[in-house]
Design a protein around this nucleic acid. Structure first.
Length: 587
RNA sequence: GCGCCUGUAGCUCAGCUGGAUAGAGUACUUGGCUUCGAACCAAGUGGUCGGGGGUUCGAAUCCCUCCGGGCGCACCA
């Protein structure tokens, strides 16, 4: 509806341009919005105020000219000029009623644009937590936001693919595999001290026990062996030595067994956790696959090598102190970055360049990365690398999600995976429920710092606005089931002329807004707009519910009101689905 | 020190590309169930939009500056 009305105004402006009232080359930014106050009608525009100066006219005078130039339309009841020159427009009743039939017709697709109607492919990557431990509440935010954004973009007509980048290569994974081995040693009664910079979580010890059951003490070393390699070393260097010891003791095959056990177990855990949170992916992309040989098995060429070679072919890579550096400063980064270390090993940055090249080569128009805000310093270098490789960095959009700072008993809870001291997403889901957790996360816009008070989340879970919205849906369901119990038949109608009370008008307006909200929220990457919309819609429903009796009214009025309820039920459902929250029949 | 995010009601937060008296929830004070679910509705109290400048018909919104929080500044991932 908004678009149709806006179009009418655009026609009027064009008309004035041909008449010469407005200069033909004048650029017009037509701002056309719903009003905040009823007296101002349904929609308003300030276009006369904006153009007055250029047209050398009094704003009200110009507004009058625009109004006079408006073509006839059945949608418009009347148009006012108010204040300094606002044009207020009142929508005709019949046009307002039309939304009921629109919803009925489109049902679960109301407000949802046609599949891939934007003809634009988007790759959306989110969470991508290292598979070194279970997801914690910090990841939960990225999960809820990313998934809701994916649904939202799809609803807005984009072709969206959701992807999880599995960081299964690199040192962290070696530390994890080694941690399991050390726990295995403990299970075998080798009285070692478990290093602080290894993964502390219980799940590691469990896996160590599993390996002991499987291998017995076949892959055991003594304390002296470990002391021999770690003596006089800083913790990090000592850890590297232990990793090397693990690899040489276990041999390639058995080490891989430890590695895969840890990886698969944790990844499975992450997968079920996310699936339980209604977060689903189209693709789980393995970082290791970037290191797999291309062509013959013995080939030294892989996607990471390829990417580096491409960079070497430009002028943006140079060698210094044994390492290869990328001149990201040429593209505005703070300093140059290493892609190949002096020992020849590629950095994480190197595989990330390869990964993004891979994404681009898969033919997406836009690649969206959702990262934790602590990675923000990383954005310029990735964009720089893409630019150096002659790709358009604008195709990559990095959305930063601020950290959720966790409080328990008023104390800040640290959230490092390494220390094992964190609150799992699974625990949160268990305690407050999926719907409440998702709503709570999505409600806040991503760049807002979030204080997550666990006690509050628990104690206030009953006050979570999600229930307010779900209750509205359940209430409607109850009205219909009660009608059925009482043997009241609800007939289809196309006449809604009796729906003229204030609460009905508010509800009709709210329903009509939904498609606009979906588009606006998608455009801004802001699923939180949906949650606020849903609260408003639920409020309109609850007010209506308290103001009217549905089943006791006479048949014709009842049919009309029930049609409005049906439409509201549908839109509540559609909105909740967008943020991955259920719409219960009863609560 | 530099960079990114942030500062709106007691608390948690909205406020779209500048627009008409700054909005919700919560808390607090009232009123509303013999009725389709009161997990609800209605009304009220509560704000120098962090401070100060500037831009203009008009600023919470844009620019400058200062102050206060969070995060980041590795041959880690």
């Amino acid at each position: 509806m908004k678009q149709d009305l806006q179009h009418i105004f655009e026609q009027a402006i064009e008309q004035l341009k041909t008449e010469g009232t407005i200069a033909a080359d004048q650029s017009v930014k037509l701002i056309f919005d719903r009003t905040k106050q009823k007296e101002h009608g349904d929609f308003a525009t300030n276009v006369a105020l904006m153009l007055a100066k250029a047209a050398k006219m009094n704003p009200r005078e110009l507004a009058q000219k625009i109004v006079d130039a408006l073509p006839e339309s059945a949608l418009i009841q009347k148009v006012d000029i108010a204040g300094p020159g606002f044009i207020n427009m009142f929508v005709a009743d019949d046009a307002k009623f039309a939304v009921i039939d629109s919803v009925k017709q489109a049902s679960e697709n109301y407000g949802i644009a046609g599949k891939n109607s934007k003809n634009h492919r988007i790759l959306l990557e989110f969470v991508s937590a290292n598979p070194t431990g279970p997801l914690h509440v910090g990841h939960g935010r990225g999960a809820a936001y990313g998934d809701a954004l994916g649904r939202l973009l799809k609803a807005a007509g984009y072709d969206v693919q959701k992807e999880y980048y599995v960081n299964d290569a690199g040192r962290q994974m070696d530390i994890l595999a080694t941690s399991v081995w050390l726990r295995y040693l403990q299970a075998a009664d080798v009285g070692i001290n478990f290093p602080e910079n290894c993964y502390q979580g219980d799940y590691v010890a469990d896996m160590g026990a599993v390996q002991f059951k499987k291998f017995g003490d076949k892959h055991v070393v003594t304390i002296t062996d470990i002391d021999a390699v770690t003596v006089d070393k800083e913790p990090d260097a000592a850890l590297d030595a232990i990793i090397a010891l693990a690899k040489s003791t276990l041999g390639e095959t058995i080490y891989e067994d430890f590695f895969q056990l840890a990886l698969q177990e944790i990844l499975d855990d992450i997968r079920t956790d996310l699936a339980g949170f209604s977060v689903d992916y189209d693709e789980w992309f393995s970082e290791r696959s970037l290191f797999q040989s291309i062509g013959s098995a013995e080939s030294n060429i892989n996607q990471v090598v390829e990417a580096i070679d491409k960079l070497k072919a430009t002028d943006y890579l140079y060698q210094e102190k044994g390492a290869w550096w990328f001149k990201s400063t040429e593209f505005g980064d703070e300093k140059d970055r290493v892609v190949l270390r002096d020992n020849g090993a590629p950095t994480y940055f190197a595989s990330d360049i390869a990964y993004h090249l891979n994404k681009f080569n898969r033919g997406f128009d836009t690649c969206i990365d959702i990262w934790g805000a602590d990675h923000h310093g990383y954005v310029p270098r990735v964009k720089a690398a893409l630019q150096a490789l002659n790709e358009d960095p604008e195709r990559l959009k990095v959305l930063l999600v601020q950290f959720a700072i966790l409080y328990r008993n008023g104390e800040k809870v640290p959230m490092s995976t390494r220390s094992g001291e964190f609150v799992k997403l699974a625990e949160l889901r268990e305690e407050v429920g999926n719907d409440a957790a998702r709503f709570y996360y999505v409600q806040r816009k991503p760049e807002q710092h979030m204080d997550f008070d666990l006690d509050l989340a628990k104690s206030q879970s009953n006050d979570n606005p999600v229930y307010y919205v779900q209750y509205a849906h359940a209430r409607i369901c109850r009205v219909f089931s009660t009608a059925q119990e009482r043997g009241i038949t609800v007939d289809e109608t196309i006449d809604y002329s009796q729906l003229t009370s204030e609460t009905e008008e508010t509800l009709l307006t709210a329903l009509a807004k939904f498609p606009e909200v979906v588009q606006a929220a998608a455009k801004a990457f802001e699923p939180h707009q949906i949650t606020y919309y849903l609260r408003d819609l639920a409020n309109a429903l609850h007010s209506y519910y308290n103001a009217c009796k549905f089943l006791d009214s006479e048949a014709e009025l009842r049919n009309q009101r029930m049609a409005l309820l049906r439409a509201t039920q549908q839109v509540l459902n559609n909105g909740l689905t967008l943020i991955g929250v259920s719409a219960p029949q009863k609560m």
